[in-house]
Write a protein that binds this DNA or RNA. Structure first.
Lengths: 175, 175
DNA sequence: TAGAATCGACAACATGGTTGACGAAGTCGA
DNA sequence: TCGACTTCGTCAACCATGTTGTCGATTCTA
């Protein structure tokens, strides 16, 4: 419980030789993004080997938004934090790639249910397996405790609703 | 040095109640991205308050690629990991926003040096300050030691040349 | 039953990428 | 010195993803 007394807190940057000075703040986002990016790159390298060469990060997020039970384009848009029009276009691409299909809703003629195809389910399942394997590599490199420390630290610092928001792709490019 | 003997290594997932089982691997990328995203969102909220309302994450990366001494569009493209044409378009936008300017090279008539304007330097300087402040907030929340542990852990797990690559923006959307 | 809300689609546009091609300019070897 | 590369910036066409606004069809609801 005693962890605020290690003599080098908040902004007591001493600036006497780099050994004492804190890590510059800009490294944190670069390390976080680099780690994220490495995981995603390796995931897609693996997926490409296993029958999903055309899958992109955006597709994974979109398929997660479709979910096991399917969803409408509007609902997918809400989950991804984009407009229903943008979601509709993304679904177009998923359909073109064979990851999803549209089915008329018999109860509501306005709606079209988007469902994952077996190919889509396969991609999602393989992704989960690969992510577990990648985490196991981290554990092999850092030890289980340090990986858990990283996860727990990040959980404390990122708002829960932010961590699991699916609108990952949209946000970098645009507004 | 003894950190591989804590009884729960690599894939000894026991699957007897979730307390013992490891965190699912897919959480790691979500936490990393959530943390990155939170930092970047907060940076740009601050920058918007301080005279840079139109600055986007992509602009920050591009300006970093321009650097203090300036660079040509081709060089910027190399640093960002995109084509020189894409870099040229990005520079167009930086120029339009007043963050950069193009200057003819007197020694090589093919080249046009891209340099940051004072407005651009201001944005970069403010970004560095804000990132330091955001890191200080993490230190206040987690303690200096845990933040350093996260940074060091990530450094071990992400290849050094990946962490500081500047082609962050390009990568999510496209191939 | 009339008005409001929702659904999917279309159109027009911005942004940020890609390739391919091109002329102008610099480099270098025979 | 001259010809063959190479490099630089730019243009054009295209793709992928977003945005707003509009629309007809349908469903919900007061």
């Amino acid at each position: 419980m005693v962890d605020e007394v290690d003599g080098e807190n908040v902004n007591q940057v001493v600036d006497q030789g780099k050994g004492v000075s804190d890590t510059p703040g800009y490294e944190l986002p670069l390390l976080l993004f680099g780690a994220f990016r490495t995981l995603i790159d390796r995931l897609h390298a693996r997926l490409a080997e296993e029958g999903h060469p055309d899958m992109r990060p955006a597709h994974g997020f979109a398929m997660q938004a479709v979910g096991a039970g399917g969803a409408t384009a509007s609902e997918i848009g809400r989950r991804l934090g984009v407009s229903k029009q943008a979601a509709g276009k993304t679904v177009d691409r998923l359909v073109a790639l064979g990851y999803a299909e549209r089915i008329d809703d018999t109860h509501d003629a306005r709606r079209k249910l988007v469902r994952l195809t077996p190919h889509g389910h396969d991609a999602l399942h393989r992704s989960a397996v690969v992510f577990d394997e990648l985490r196991a590599e981290w554990v092999a490199a850092l030890g289980g405790e340090r990986v858990r420390d990283i996860e727990n630290g990040l959980r404390e610092v990122v708002p829960a609703e932010t961590a699991f928001r699916l609108d990952a792709t949209s946000w970098l490019g645009g507004a």
